[in-house]
Design a protein around this nucleic acid. Structure first.
Length: 288
DNA sequence: GTACTTGTTGAACG
DNA sequence: TCGTTCAACAAGTA
């Protein structure tokens, strides 16, 4: 599933690909995916809009138009955005697709945007959790106002994280890291991975961590996010064990998706528990 | 067929 | 008002 690094990679690529393009037509194939919910209204409202810049907030991808409206996407777990240049190669972002077999549109395609140079952007989403919202300035603010700070911004300081742990002494590490209203963009993968790198259990209570551990945790969060972006954000694990396509970050995972396999550090078998209603993986020996 | 998984939202709870 | 818990969303896998 797309995480912050993957959305960021997609943002960079789409920003280059889409800048200054004009929307020639739009086709909604699954109305519940879009806002406004009416396909007709959506399709009519978006044509002739010109793309100014593509931005990202947490895991939300924001295509800004020149008239200060925007099309905001959330890929959730299985969303994909695929850009097909006219006669050119595809840019694929989001949920990994079986390699080289994407024919478009297909039965998971929810929205098609065609640009005036005949290039096309497809929004695919197998499970239909994702959305594409056409919003004005104030609606865009509503979409993002509840989100906490970006973990890769300068605001994400040692002191900020230490204060958070003080503010929520009874929560667990993982609960704090994954709370989008506190820190925006960390999902299950990076919560588990950064806990491993810090050698702490994800279900440790916040008030049991020493300031030095919190500082280490912050370093590890940043390191793991940056490494994943560097590897083109292909952080998504193979979605089901049978799906042979591995993302570029997968070889760097220590615990996520590795339950039952030996720890890369000490060979102890990685365990999986349910914590905070989420699958949570850890090494019982390395993490305390 | 049944249970389970997954990220996020929002309702319901004390 | 606040923090916590849980159902809902959809479709594929075990």
């Amino acid at each position: 599933m797309p995480e912050l690094p993957e959305v960021e990679t997609l943002r960079r690529e789409l920003n280059l690909a889409l800048k200054n393009k004009k929307i020639l037509s739009a086709k909604v194939l699954y109305p519940k995916t879009v806002f406004p919910l009416s396909s007709k209204i959506f399709e009519h409202a978006i044509v002739t809009k010109k793309i100014a810049v593509v931005e990202r907030r947490a895991k939300i991808l924001i295509i800004n138009f020149s008239d200060s409206t925007a099309l905001a996407f959330h890929l959730k777990m299985t969303g994909q955005l695929i850009f097909q240049a006219h006669g050119g190669k595809k840019i694929v972002g989001g949920h990994p697709a079986p390699k080289d077999e994407i024919t478009l549109p297909n039965n998971h395609t929810r929205l098609i945007l065609t640009f005036s140079d005949n290039s096309i952007l497809y929004f695919n989403d197998l499970r239909k959790f994702g959305w594409a919202k056409l919003v004005d300035d104030s609606q865009l603010k509503d979409l993002t106002k509840h989100l906490g700070i970006e973990p890769l911004s300068k605001l994400f300081t040692d002191q900020f994280l230490i204060d958070l742990f003080k503010q929520y002494p009874n929560r667990t590490v993982k609960q704090i890291l994954m709370d989008q209203t506190l820190i925006a963009g960390i999902g299950n993968i990076y919560a588990d991975e950064s806990a491993f790198l810090t050698k702490i259990m994800p279900n440790r209570k916040a008030n049991t961590l020493k300031p030095l551990q919190i500082k280490n945790l912050r370093q590890n969060i940043i390191a793991v996010l940056k490494l994943s972006i560097k590897l083109k954000g292909t952080s998504a694990k193979n979605y089901r064990r049978s799906d042979g396509s591995l993302g570029g970050f997968v070889p760097h995972l220590y615990v996520y998706g590795r339950a039952g396999q030996p720890c890369k550090v000490c060979r102890t078998i990685i365990q999986k528990i349910k914590h905070n209603q989420r699958g949570t993986q850890f090494c019982p020996k390395c993490q305390k």
